[in-house]
Simulated assay, not measured.
Amino acid sequence: MELPDIYQRKALRLEGFGDDEVQRMLRAGHLTAVRRGSYVLGAAPDDPDSRHALQVRAELAHLADGAVASHASAAVLHRLPTWGMRLQRVHVTRNWRTGGRTGRGLHLHTAPLHPDDIDLVDGLPVTSVARTVVDLARTLPFEAALVVADAALHALINDPEQLAALRTALAEVLARAAGWRGCPAARRVVAFADERSGSVGESRSRVAMARAGLPVPVLQWEVFGGAGWIGTVDFGWPEKRTIGEFDGKEKYGRLLRPGQSPADAVYAEKRREDALRAENLSMVRWGWDALADFGPTASRLRTFLRD
C-alpha cells in the first residue's frame, strides 16, 4: 500500500516552519494532521484502511521500542479485510504482564509475545498473520473474525506449503494462548475457517447458512456437464443439484479478463448461469442486503435442499 510520507513537528521546526505557519498550512489544506505532531502533505488517503495505516506508522514513531502493531491495526498492515472492525484507534501490543490502556487514539494491549508472533511489514513491527487472526478471533464477534481468518488462508490457496505452514502457526498460537480470554472463541473461528472462501461476502454467507441450520455446502464446486467443465460456483450441494451464489459488485471485477468490460463480464456470467440451469441445476443468488436478514434466502435454499 502506497502511503505518503509523514512529517514530524520536530522535523518541521528544524526546517524553519514555525507553529503559526504550520497552523496556516493546516487550515489551507497543505498539511493534514495524522495524529498530534505528525502530518502529511496535502490530504490524507480517502479509504479507511490507508488512513489507518498512516495512523499506525505515526503512532509507532511516538512510542518507545517494543510496541508491536496488533489486532485491527495488524490486519490493515497485512492487507487483510477489516469488515466489522472499528479503526478509530491504533492497536499495539507490548510484552508486558499489566499496564494496558485505552486512549482517544491508542489501544495498548499487554500480553506475552513469542518471537514467532512478530513480523516486519513495510518496516514496522506487527504481529504475525497467525497471531493477528487469533487475537482478532479472541476479541471480535465470530462473523467479523471469520472474514479475517478465511482471507488469511485464501491468500495462500495457490501455495500448499505456505498454507500448511499458516495452519500450523495458527495451531501453535492457539496452544500458547490457552487460558487467555476469548481463546475458546478463537478455536471455533480457526476450526471453521476455510481457504476456499474467496471474499468477505462468501465468508459472511457461510456464517449465515450455518446459523440458519442449512446443510454444509461444497465451496468452489467445480461443475461439469455433458460438454465438459461449465464453471466454478461459490456454494454447491451436488446431491441436491443446487447452487448458491453470492453476488457482490467486486465479484464481476474479479471475473474481468484483459480487455473485457464489466458489461462483458455480466453477459458472460449470464451465459454461464444458463449453462448451469441447462444441467438441471437449481440456483439461488443473493447479495449484501440478504446478509442482514438471511431468513428469506435460507427459505429459498431449503425449497431445493429438503429431502
Rank of each mutant, 00 (worst) to 15 (best):
G213K: 11
K249I: 11
C183V: 15
T303H: 15
P125G: 11
V190P: 02
Q260C: 03
P81M: 03
D117E: 12
L163Y: 07
A64M: 10
L54C: 04
W180C: 11
L255W: 02
Y7P: 00
A278Y: 02
P45Y: 12
L166T: 06
K249A: 14
R36F: 09
V34A: 06
K240E: 12
A171P: 03
E239V: 05
A263I: 11
S299K: 13
R94H: 11
A227H: 15
Q8R: 15
P262V: 11
D307M: 02
G16W: 09
G100D: 13
T93N: 06
H62I: 01
A210C: 05
D47M: 04
V218R: 14
W180D: 13
W83A: 12
G66Q: 10
R302K: 14
K249N: 09
R97M: 10
G287Y: 12
R211C: 03
L108F: 08
L153P: 09
L41N: 03
A268H: 14
W83G: 04
E250V: 12
A169H: 03
R51V: 13
D264W: 09
D5Q: 13
A145Y: 05
V76L: 06
L106F: 13
R241H: 14
A75S: 10
L163E: 11
W229L: 15
L77Q: 05
G198I: 00
